[in-house]
């Protein structure tokens, strides 16, 4: 299967499974709304909140710093909400990806029962995978930091220009990005393989995923780069729009809100499309990969 054919198929499949996009978008909207409303309630409840009105016209750094300095004590509570909701969102998304993959893998039209069953079946496996991925990222991070530190020390010792150091930092950033991308890819394909084979050992599946990526590196990376580029283009488009649409009136706030949500919807769409691509790519390169029966595997 060609890459273009893969994308075309994935786009059609995602477009035909709008409830999956809606599920991903909706879950994140709900969790993020809790944080945003907590923020709003927190700010509105502070004494002297009336002084914030000028911020609607233009950001006022002086007022903002005074606000942080004099009311900062209350921000701790808000951070707790953010932390809790982030953890909850990670857990729910881990479970949700099982439902998305099962729905996409079945080849039939969307069924809520199937989706929920997929969520429940793979929730704990994917949470274990998340922990493993975290450990892998931490190990890779430590190694990268150590190497980058040695490199920068060597470049900066008695150097007379910062240019080699800046180049070194840029190279370190590129390498770190690439490593993070590989970790994310390994994690994604491990989920696809889990759903395809019904595997219960996440460590073994992660190993199989890495081996699969090593054998099909170019195709997998091309897929990842194209999808990441699409997301970046989308983000650039959003930034351009946001630059034009300053939030200096209530109508503008509503307009920007709509643009923001359209952007998030598109991101959710791309995420589901990515799963679809990965599923098709795995099946095309690994004919043994099928669709495990839920509850049997």
């Amino acid at each position: 299967m060609t890459l273009i054919g893969l994308f075309r198929g994935a786009f059609r499949e995602t477009a035909g499974n709008v409830p999956l996009v809606a599920a991903l978008y909706g879950t994140n909207l709900v969790f993020a709304s809790v944080v945003a409303l907590a923020f709003r309630a927190f700010v509105a409840g502070l004494p002297g909140a009336g002084s914030l009105e000028p911020l609607l016209k233009d950001f006022d750094m002086t007022l903002f710093f005074d606000f942080l300095r004099t009311r900062g004590y209350a921000i701790g509570a808000l951070w707790q909400v953010v932390l809790f909701m982030t953890l909850l969102s990670v857990a729910v998304n881990a479970a949700g990806s099982g439902g998305i993959l099962v729905s996409l893998g079945s080849g039939s039209s969307f069924s809520l029962r199937e989706f929920l069953l997929g969520c429940g079946t793979y929730a704990f496996r994917f949470l274990r995978l998340l922990v493993l991925t975290g450990v892998m990222t931490a190990l890779a991070g430590f190694a990268l930091i150590a190497i980058a530190g040695l490199l920068l020390e060597a470049l900066s010792r008695n150097g007379t220009s910062e240019i080699p150091v800046i180049e070194g930092l840029a190279a370190a950033a590129v390498v770190s990005g690439a490593v993070l991308m590989l970790v994310v890819m390994a994690s994604d394909y491990a989920r696809v393989l889990t759903v395809s084979t019904g595997s219960r050992s996440m460590l073994r599946t992660l190993g199989r995923s890495i081996a699969f990526l090593a054998r099909n590196a170019w195709g997998a990376i091309a897929l990842q780069v194209v999808m990441a580029s699409l997301t970046l283009c989308l983000f650039a488009l959003f930034l351009l729009l946001a630059e034009v649409l300053e939030m200096n009136s209530s109508m503008r706030v509503i307009l920007v809100f709509i643009v923001q949500q359209a952007f998030i919807w598109c991101r959710s769409f791309l995420r589901v499309m990515m799963f679809s691509c990965e599923l098709a790519f795995t099946r095309s390169r690994l004919p043994s990969a099928g669709h495990a029966e839920i509850g049997v595997a």
Partner: peptide
């Protein structure tokens, strides 16, 4: 205005978390 901004960036963070989770 700022609640909308917070919402948007938190949504982005959560979606990024969804990608790695």
């Amino acid at each position: 205005k700022y609640a909308v901004k917070v919402l948007f960036w938190v949504q982005n963070i959560f979606l990024f978390a969804a990608t790695i989770a």
